[in-house]
Nucleic acid binder design. Structure first.
Length: 718
DNA sequence: ATAGGGTTAG
């Protein structure tokens, strides 16, 4: 190594290597490399040696870069930086953890070789940190090393540090670094804004953006605009979004296709589809992303028909859909249960060779499951060699959505055997399967898994867990989990209330409602279904009326059929049958089928046959398909001795093609599920069970309890 | 003479 003027071969090799690096010309560079080895230039000139490392690194040949690096005897800081940045720029968790290894080795060897990290080193390191498996500690440590080496005032280092903290979700730390930087450029501002954008902090992003425009207007470019737009993806930011739209027009940056696309996306996510369409139509330059943005916008806002329509229009313009387009279209199909269109997209994605892309296949599995085609969903799932946790969860969730809860649990076990680590959504999904099965034992095992994997009782898991316990009848455990949840949303409150109310703890459910209100959580329509049904269980007619009126007057929630049903149930159970009848007749007529049915059952319990007959006739008029309605009505006429009417009801029942679904119940004991269908004699211990039922019935009768048998007897006699 | 940061839009 020498500081003397270089011999001319080295100088020429060096400049040729630079050219190959710039052009990423691997072949030419390799030829040069072999010539360099023959003349011995690499061992005599550090510049040439470093250029070789850099050349291989830039051509993504990291193995060769590493070999060339290790051959250098007197590595200087540039040698290290070329290799570190080579790995850092390629990204991924393996490369990034190797960056950290190199960085540590460099620090270990620093004193013996007199090599110290500089700004170039730290930028590479900070870029690698977010890709690490556990990035937090490493990031903070590297930051403090950079402080010790007095590197953080460098604008490159500072910007990459802001970027690092932003990606780690530590936007406050990013902001601290940002505020202390003596110099900022366009990169710095974009990184800061993106940090806010990923946290959905639109107000902060806007504030920083305005600061930038005020301080250094020259910094406005397409990157700044797209990053601030990505932070404005909800309805509350629509005004800011329009401001940015104006600015994009004034600055002429709207003609940049990425900016136009970002604006279409922003309007789509804000639910302003009219503005999205207008902007889209005025785009001077449309690409597949523009179309995807619009299609996804419609799909997300619930107008799935329009999304599908746009998709076929896109095809007629010969615009090739990307994987993102197809994901959007598949989501639209799931939403409206359009399995026909979904199948077409399936064929299309196979044709385009997207069959091994996990995101698309996940959307497809989801589509089939939501359309009720679980077998097709499973086929798609089985097609992929290495499903990721999102796909596993989608398939398990697909089973749950279709009521195949046992299959969901079986698949979860298979996943565990395969050593796949579940995420929070997986746990919530499996717990839902347990809730639906009322499978307490399995539920407890999943709870053990929750603890084992270290999931917190945050909303998805904590909520699902408390619901599971409540639905399985373990109200105390459910309540315990609920109390220990760090935060609760309206859904968690609703679920706990329904769990309490279903298990006979109506007063506790109402108490919970008052508590929810005092903690400032806004109730939704489900909350009131729970409240009213709790009132109904407890026979609290007055309170029921108060809540029913409060719902629309104070909270602006329009009552749905469920609320009307709760009220009719409440009045019927309390024996206020005439009041119930009047309430039904003052309610929207389209709820009739549901409401008269409830009143009819109420009339049976209170033996009010005249009103029962009235309700039953209403149900027949409305064309009820409910077998119990016809059975009850004909029983009533039997009791009233109106033979002709009995015949008429029977004829109507046959005419409507009403069939009685047999009642079914089940219980899980010693990890075996025992199923009972009304009238069957399938259970191996059927005789025993019947004897026991007879014994219990006798006990009940001896206690003086008289069941409502007369209607049933009437039905049997006729 | 050699080494460094934004992937933002679906």
């Amino acid at each position: 190594m020498t500081n003397l003027p270089l011999p001319s071969p080295s100088r020429s090799f060096f400049s040729k290597l630079l050219l190959c690096t710039h052009e990423k010309n691997l072949k030419q560079g390799q030829i040069l490399h072999s010539q360099i080895i023959q003349t011995g230039s690499s061992s005599s000139c550090l510049f040439v040696a470093n250029a070789i490392v850099n050349f291989y690194a830039k051509c993504h040949r990291l193995t060769e870069a590493k070999l060339a690096f290790e051959e250098i005897q007197n590595k200087d800081v540039v040698s290290w930086n070329c290799l570190i940045n080579g790995y850092s720029q390629l990204g991924g968790s393996r490369n990034s953890s190797f960056v950290m290894e190199l960085f540590q080795r460099m620090m270990r060897e620093e004193s013996e070789n007199n090599v110290y990290p500089n700004g170039h080193t730290f930028t590479g390191v900070f870029t690698a940190v977010p890709d690490l498996k556990s990035p937090l500690g490493a990031g903070k440590q590297a930051h403090s090393v950079a402080v010790a080496f007095d590197s953080v005032s460098d604008v490159y280092v500072g910007s990459s540090l802001v970027n690092m903290y932003g990606k780690l979700g530590l936007v406050c730390d990013a902001r601290k670094v940002f505020d202390r930087m003596p110099e900022r450029n366009s990169f710095t501002w974009v990184n800061m804004i993106c940090g806010y954008a990923v946290q959905r902090l639109g107000v902060e992003a806007m504030r920083v953006f305005k600061l930038m425009v005020g301080v250094e207007e020259w910094g406005l470019n397409e990157f700044v605009l797209t990053s601030v737009l990505s932070a404005l993806a909800t309805t509350e930011f629509i005004v800011s979004g329009k401001q940015i739209h104006c600015l994009a027009i004034k600055s002429g940056l709207l003609s940049v296709v990425s900016v136009g696309n970002a604006i279409v996306t922003m309007y789509g996510k804000c639910g302003s589809l009219d503005d999205a369409v207008k902007t889209f139509e005025l785009l001077s330059d449309k690409n597949t992303i523009s179309w995807s943005a619009l299609i996804t916008g419609f799909a997300k806002s619930g107008d799935s028909e329009k999304a599908l329509e746009l998709f076929s229009k896109m095809n007629s313009f010969m615009m090739k859909p990307s994987e993102f387009t197809l994901v959007g279209v598949l989501n639209a199909c799931s939403d409206i249960g359009a399995v026909g269109e979904g199948k077409q997209v399936h064929g299309y994605l196979v044709k385009l060779g997207f069959e091994s892309q996990i995101y698309i296949m996940t959307a497809m599995v989801d589509m089939y499951a939501k359309c009720g085609c679980v077998t097709d969903a499973r086929k798609g799932f089985d097609y992929l060699q290495e499903p990721d946790i999102v796909l596993w969860t989608s398939m398990i969730g697909g089973y749950v959505q279709n009521g195949q809860n046992e299959d969901a649990l079986v698949l979860y076990c298979k996943m565990q055997i395969g050593g796949i680590f579940p995420n929070e959504l997986t746990m919530a999904t499996v717990l839902k399967a347990c809730s639906s099965l009322a499978a307490l034992e399995q539920g407890k095992q999943i709870h053990a898994n929750v603890v084992k994997y270290g999931f917190s009782l945050e909303i998805p898991v904590g909520s699902a867990l408390s619901i599971m316990y409540a639905k399985c009848g373990s109200v105390n455990e459910g309540n315990l989990v609920f109390r220990r949840m760090p935060t609760r949303d309206v859904i968690s409150w609703n679920s706990m209330m329904s769990g309490l109310s279903q298990n006979g703890y109506g007063n506790e459910a109402l108490e919970l409602f008052e508590q929810m209100m005092s903690e400032g959580t806004k109730p939704d329509y489900v909350t009131f279904v729970n409240v009213l049904s709790a009132c109904s269980h407890m026979g609290l007619v007055e309170r029921g009326w108060i809540y029913f009126n409060k719902m629309s007057n104070e909270f602006g929630i329009v009552p749905t059929v469920e609320h009307y049903a709760c009220m009719v149930d409440l009045l019927s159970r309390a024996g206020k049958l005439t009041e119930a009848k009047e309430f039904i007749e003052s309610s929207p007529t389209e709820h009739g089928l549901c409401l008269w049915q409830i009143l009819l059952s109420g009339c049976r319990n209170y033996r009010d046959y005249d009103l029962g007959a009235y309700a039953g006739e209403k149900l027949m008029e409305l064309g009820s398909k409910e077998s119990s309605a016809y059975v009850l009505l004909s029983s009533i006429y039997t009791l009233l001795g109106r033979r002709g009417d009995v015949e008429r009801v029977r004829r109507m029942m046959n005419l409507q093609g009403v069939n009685k679904e047999p009642g079914c119940s089940w219980i899980e004991m010693k990890s075996q599920v025992h199923v009972f269908v009304a009238g069957d004699q399938m259970h191996p211990q059927d005789k025993h069970i019947r004897t026991e039922v007879q014994r219990l019935s006798k006990l009940i009768k001896d206690e003086g309890f008289k069941p409502v048998f007369d209607l049933l007897c009437a039905d049997l006699e006729s």
